[in-house]
Design a protein around this nucleic acid. Structure first.
Length: 582
DNA sequence: AGTTTCGGCGCC
DNA sequence: AAAGGGCGCCGAAACT
């Protein structure tokens, strides 16, 4: 290594990086304007290029998923990154251009005025899924082109209503992608033997009658006996028919509907459904598929949803049943620090709406739902919680409405905030999180579906009134009133979006802060689920980690929402087993 | 026979 | 009592 790179690294903290053909890598330092401060250098080894420049505080690259796993495999971590394609997705959304191709190559084409290439991965996505997912190894760009896109993004960021927030958002999303890649590498400690013991305890021997577990076979027999004839409890149609023969009308076999039925088959049936679920979703074959060498390795995808929440690929990592968490056990001498944000959504609502009453309540660390109920629900905590969640989710009937009225009297600005989001969503206007992540005004069908339905590829404004979309739009033309269900659904989506999405903004900042604090330690982030993190660390680091989480939460609150009295307390447990955390 | 959708339920 | 947001996963059913 010659020494100019190291020198430059001290002068300028941002460098751009792009893998080059033949396993090499191009790097260049960036000036304050986002343009190269020195000529592009071709180097032979990606990891060495990064490792030899410890002074770089932010690496600008096309795609974290393209570059970072290789770096981690070489034992190299970076302090910060800027993910150009993640930023492009956020910027396009903010500009009301959801659905335009988001690749760096597309961004370059828009910059240069050439034909815009479609995103290859987008075509395969689910209709309307709007996944932020990209093939990690999409079209690479030469570094000078990539830098041009980056500089353009800086200008577009500056042009937003709140450039500081947008910068924070792109930085936070990029940090999330670093964390996700690191968590994917670490894996969640998982004791297969404990998992098997739990399964045996619940389900009996793996192979018994009919090839399934013994306990399921027994329960199926009990269900059949209760009906007086053979019924397969895993077939909804079978069960509905059996109830009908017994003189009980049910329209589905959903738990809440079956629960109220008075019939001897109900009890074994519900038990069967509970255990069947464990068996198919987290049973022996799941264990075989997803757990290796004492680790469960799902693939975390930051920015996998439009609200900014993450998703996982494989193994249902964000839906691990409580009972199965028994198998998540720290390594010998290590601990799990499990931290769960307390009443995150109403606290976020307080922070974004600036409702004086709700901010005051959320300014305390004590149970927020209890405080709300003391003020508006005569101490009935359960009602208060339902009312708050109903306001956030857009409940439209039942006791929720009555409770919503009570909530509105005491916390008018908070309810007005989500009401306005819902109205904007219904009317097809843009709705944003606090940091500027933008809700798609309407979900657009894929190009294929659009062509089939004879709908022109949407260029037009979303329209003053929400219009139906997709194949059924042709079959059922929109008339006022008729499609209100769709418009209302979009209203509910938008209502929830501002809260869930702003909460996701905050959670990303939390992760970023926590990651930085942990960087010199043996501790590793191993799990993240919306408002909950797990850090795996040596026993002696546990107290430090717990404190780091608390401080990171405070910092994230201040960074995300600016000066606010709202607090974001965590319930933190230091345990050997995840199941013991609650 | 292979692919997509549905039903139900797990998590937040 | 019964219902509102976001996801993923599985087998069965429905389809091509």
């Amino acid at each position: 290594m010659s020494d100019p790179p190291a020198t430059l690294a001290r002068m300028t903290d941002r460098w751009a990086l792009a893998p080059a053909e033949g396993g090499g890598v191009d790097v260049a330092p960036l000036g304050p304007d986002g343009l190269p401060a020195a000529p592009v250098r071709r180097e032979t080894d990606l990891a060495e290029a990064v490792r030899s420049r410890p002074g770089v505080t932010r690496w600008v690259w096309r795609s974290t998923a393209e570059v970072y796993p290789d770096l981690l495999a070489s034992g190299v971590r970076v302090e910060r990154a800027y993910d150009i394609e993640a930023a492009e997705t956020l910027l396009l959304g903010h500009e009301g251009r959801y659905g335009e191709p988001r690749s760096a190559a597309a961004a370059l084409a828009r910059l240069r005025g050439g034909p815009v290439p479609p995103d290859p991965a987008q075509r395969q996505a689910e209709p309307g899924a709007q996944s932020a997912l990209f093939e990690p190894h999409g079209t690479p760009l030469p570094l000078p082109d990539l830098i041009a896109v980056y500089a353009g993004q800086q200008r577009r960021t500056d042009a937003t209503a709140h450039p500081d927030r947008m910068r924070l958002l792109t930085a936070a999303e990029s940090a999330g992608m670093l964390v996700a890649a690191e968590m994917n590498r670490a894996g969640l400690p998982w004791r297969a033997d404990v998992h098997r013991a739990v399964l045996h305890d619940l389900l009996g021997e793996r192979y018994a009658g009919g090839g399934g577990p013994r306990r399921l076979a027994e329960l199926a027999d009990e269900v059949s006996a209760a009906f007086g004839h053979r019924v397969r409890p895993d077939l909804p149609a079978d069960v509905v028919k059996a109830f009908a023969r017994a003189g009980v009308k049910v329209t589905s076999t959903r738990r809440w509907e079956i629960e109220s039925v008075d019939h001897p088959a109900v009890k074994p049936l519900l038990e069967y459904k509970k255990l069947y679920r464990i068996w198919v979703a987290h049973g022996w074959s799941w264990l075989q598929d997803w757990v290796r060498d004492g680790r469960f390795r799902p693939e975390f995808l930051a920015g996998g949803t439009v609200t900014g929440r993450w998703v996982t690929n494989g193994g249902g990592a964000l839906q691990i049943p409580k009972i199965i968490r028994r198998a998540v056990v720290a390594d010998p001498g290590w601990r799990l620090v499990v931290a769960d944000a307390d009443q995150m959504e109403p606290r976020v609502l307080a922070a974004i709406s600036r409702d004086p009453g709700l901010m005051e309540v959320a300014g305390r660390e004590s149970d927020l739902y209890q405080s709300v109920s003391d003020r508006a629900f005569s101490g009935d905590r359960a009602q208060a919680k339902l009312a708050v969640l109903g306001a956030v989710y857009g409940q439209t009937s039942g006791d929720g409405l009555k409770n919503l009225a009570a909530l509105r009297r005491r916390f008018p600005k908070a309810v007005a905030y989500v009401d306005e989001a819902a109205r904007a969503g219904q009317e097809g206007r843009l709705v944003r999180t606090w940091l500027g992540r933008t809700c798609p005004p309407a979900v657009r069908p894929t190009e294929d579906a659009t062509e089939e339905a004879g709908i022109p590829p949407a260029q037009e404004e979303p329209g003053p009134a929400a219009r139906p979309w997709g194949p059924e739009a042709e079959a059922r033309p929109w008339v006022p009133g008729y499609a209100s269900t769709d418009a209302r659904a979009r209203g509910r989506f938008a209502r929830n979006f501002v809260v869930q999405g702003s909460a996701a903004d905050w959670a990303l900042l939390l992760l970023a802060a926590l990651r930085r604090t942990l960087s010199g330690m043996a501790a590793e982030l191993v799990f993240f689920q919306h408002d909950e993190v797990i850090v795996h660390c040596p026993e002696e680091e546990a107290a430090t980690v717990a404190e780091a989480i608390r401080q990171s939460a405070d910092l994230a609150g201040r960074l995300t929402f600016g000066p606010t009295p709202v607090r974001f307390p965590f319930t933190t447990a230091v345990v050997e087993c995840y199941a013991d955390a609650k």
